[in-house]
Amino acid sequence: MYLIQYLYEQHRKDLGLVLVAGTSGLSRRINKPEVHRPGLSLTGYLKGYVGTRILVMGKQEIEFLRGLDSKVRKERLGAILTSSTPAVIVAKGGLPSKELIEICEKKGVPLFQASSNATNLLSRLTFLLLEEFCPSVTLHGSLVEVFGVGVLIQGESSVGKSETALGLIERGHRLISDDVVRIKKKEGAYLIGSGPELTRHLMEIRGIGIINVAHLYGAVCVRPDKEIDLVVKLEEWDDQHFYDRVGLDEKFIDVLGVSIPYHLLPVKPGRDVVLLLETTALNHRLKNMGYHSAKEFNAKLLEAIAQRQKTGSVRETR
């Protein structure tokens, strides 16, 4: 639930918002990440009008209203400002009319004056709202950037996620978040992971305690967010389980409806998990560049077998 109040508190500075009227409506909900310039609706044409969008009035709308008779002005404004209108924002260059202020105050619709022009306001508000409304989830795991690949390390508690992440940082890779990763689905297509503000770049290592990676290893070893390219699940080595030995079949995992390549990596003494993760990330990069080691080798092998069969059959006919 996103309220006008939150928008006002979080973005009053960057949007240059000043509250003019309708303070009682600050708790109004924003139900849609949409912003609307009422232009046509002010002429009285209300067919298909959606009342749940934030209204942005530019210089033109204000001038148009000014040209109307006071009674008509009240009527038209009364029709577009409904009980579900989240807010009205007047862009730079326009001064809200007396009637607009009155109606907003009466109906409890927050009325703001902004310091940027309508076009700018429209694009920035749309961007802000889309960001706020995109699907998100909090997952247990560590997010590390390895050779530019965003790797989400998952696994049961105490399997060694944090220790692996620490090992990777020591090798020059970057930590985004340890233990808790907030994931947002952007533009319905890709995932961006980040850490919660409060515990950002902090790690808990058993036996040492809470450490600040940014302070210990420097700013070069951390970053605020990263696209998730790969999910690696660490698990204790299970003799009953058959782990992938050839890598011909690729597995995927669903996160917020996005399919992400997935690897199950068994952990046991003697296996250098940090090195294995680096290799997994590099192999992923190689695949993205169009070279799939396992498939490429298999093709070569099939060709060699076919060749042998050919020469073999020649020999048999002799």
């Binding site: 247990h140 508690s157 808790v180 919660p196 515990t199 902090l202």
Partner: peptide, 11 residues
């Protein structure tokens, strides 16, 4: 959040 993780509880 997973209650076995200190960082998660602190968050």
């Amino acid at each position: 959040i997973n209650a076995r993780s200190i960082m998660s509880i602190l968050m």
